[in-house]
Design a protein around this nucleic acid. Sequence first.
DNA 1: AGCACGCCGACT
DNA 2: GTCGGCGTGCTC
Length: 731
Amino acid sequence: MLLRVAVNTPLRRCFDYLAPADHRGSAPLPGTRISVPFGHRREVAILLETPARTDAPPAKLRRAHAILDATPIIPADMLSLLRWASEYYRHPIGEVLAAALPAALRHGASPAGGRTGWRLTAPGRAADPDTIAARAPLQARMLTALGRCDPTGLAGEELRGLGASVRPALRALQAKGLIEACSLPSSLPEVIRSAEPGPELTAAQREAVAAIRADFGSFMAFLLFGVTGSGKTEVYLELAREALARGLQALVLVPEIGLTPQLVRRFERRLATPLALMHSGLGDRERLESWRAARSGQARVVLGTRSAVFAPLPEAGLIVVDEEHDTSYKQQDGFKYSARDLAVLRARRERIPIVLGSATPSLETLHNVYRGRYRRLDLPERAGCANQPRIEIVDLRHHAVQEGISTPLVLRIQGHLERGGQVLLYLNRRGFAPTLFCSECGWIANCLRCDAHLTLHRSSHQLRCHHCGAARPPETACPACGCEVHPVGEGTQRIEDALARLFPAAPALRIDRDTTQRRGQIEAKLEAARRGEARILVGTQMLTKGHDFPEVSLVGILNADQGLFGTDFRSSERLAQTILQVAGRAGRAERPGEVLVQTLYPEHPLLRKLVTEGYEPFARAALEERRATSWPPFSHLALLRAEAPTRQAPLDFLERARGLAPGAANGIALLGPAPAPMERRAGRFRAQLLIQAAARASLQRLLSDWVGQVALLPEARRVRWSIDVDPVELF
DNA sequence: AGCACGCCGACT
DNA sequence: GTCGGCGTGCTC
């Protein structure tokens, strides 16, 4: 019997093995774990099929060590989705499967049951801890503790509190036959008895729920297009409740930064059901626990970030993707999948409805609505009678600006503070100033390893590179001419300083990656902000995603221009989404909100459209622009990237790769090779080749042969390269 | 990607 | 005489 398996390696192929010597009976099913010898190592591989014959030379064919599961660890439908994704994103199947499974399962953990722990054996129960207390006090304490929890047992972590070297003590007790490993019940949190009632739904919310409910049991993709504050989460909760009532599981995906303790508590309280959480902050053990809870059906709701799209759900009934426009759904390294796109595909294959929620949907999703692929549901009103904030543009060419804050904004801040409102200022730049500059000779503080300026961080007295992390003390004088150097531009630190001078009576709070490095710090800060301890909040992205500040009545966007003329075709879409997401923080309670957007280009047509007419007219205009210029969603992209310690190697590799591609046919254009917009990063030179195709199918046809050939190029060995299908970042 | 093999410089 | 630099080749 032959076993064709996927091994966790970057190789773009499968490997065939003979069944283990002791194997009897029928063939194992695809998705089963197989322990195999691989080179000089032992690997846990995943069975893909049991072919009748193999092309492998007989001399190389080896025997698998063991078949590890009686039933597949990956169900057939998930395995098929993953194989499809491996093909579509051109990523090696072994790594795709590895990304979809908790690492612990590749290290021999059991897919079933609860956590492993320790409990007393019969001799252990009979033993008297006091007899060993003198020579082995830790072992004695363990026996006592396990005696109290007999026969359930205790987890290793629970025993850790008893002393320093827990592991050897456990091993000694096990060797004496006093304790044994056992399986513990799952550690899901205590379920709250009764679900807390939610607010009464608005008419629009009720309509949305009814429309989606009518499609339970079949595939349909919905765009829940709800302005910020319209209560999309209430719709998700109601739908999840409906799924639970029907005995189905719900999968809720949120952006990286959106999975906050408040959101988890809200789901727990309102649904009164065990949740499985899946996010990057989990350890191997916790990840395994969540995976088990989802797979056993014990968890009825799975709440997670990107990778939760691969959660096993035996009774899947509904998928929700909140803030579907968020770019964190696209994995940026390794297996570069889009969790949002795979979620839609998963819903289609499992014949269940999927809800994509956003106040600022991606142009791709809107395009799918306009051409009838997705059904649209609107939540046009803010829940709880708050009005939409009014957005105004401040022309930076016609107003004095001190430290990045224009006079009209200063006056407006003053007004709102006097009336007791809270003010939020958004600036997508950390640090004190974007760089240090000599006005005599033009010298600029540059990173030695990147094509980037160093950012001045005054509080830590450092120049830091935000791209490679390098840091050094700032120059006191220009190294080129000896003249004085000055910080140029504004970062959040500098704004914070400026505010302290402009509004000494109003305490300000800065929230960015620099002030919230420790875990829980951001929660504490947000809580302080919500309690109104700070009158002015200054922050980056972190401040804007999903957090509510009911007392904020004025929002200032300090540097809109970065997004207006960015390097890629998505810049204006991003800017619009950022402006509206930040604006959404204003006026959530009864107070109407005001938003001021500072710009040097108040006449920019898309910005005007956004401010005067709103997101959708903006989006329609932006889509027209995309159509005219043949960018996605009116074309389909793949990006071949390469990097190496020399400038030439990536370009040579990409040039050879380009030469392997069939000539410009089938509406396919090859753009490049060209150096990346930031050519040098962390000491490596980067370049890229963009493939643009009129149709997804022709792009896939090209990639299917080409990527394999590219991988075999001798030049490929001299660079680090990767392919990104449907790239979100073009640098 | 790992990992082993292999072939040339500075140390005991 | 060996430790170890990273080029090259392989993983059923």
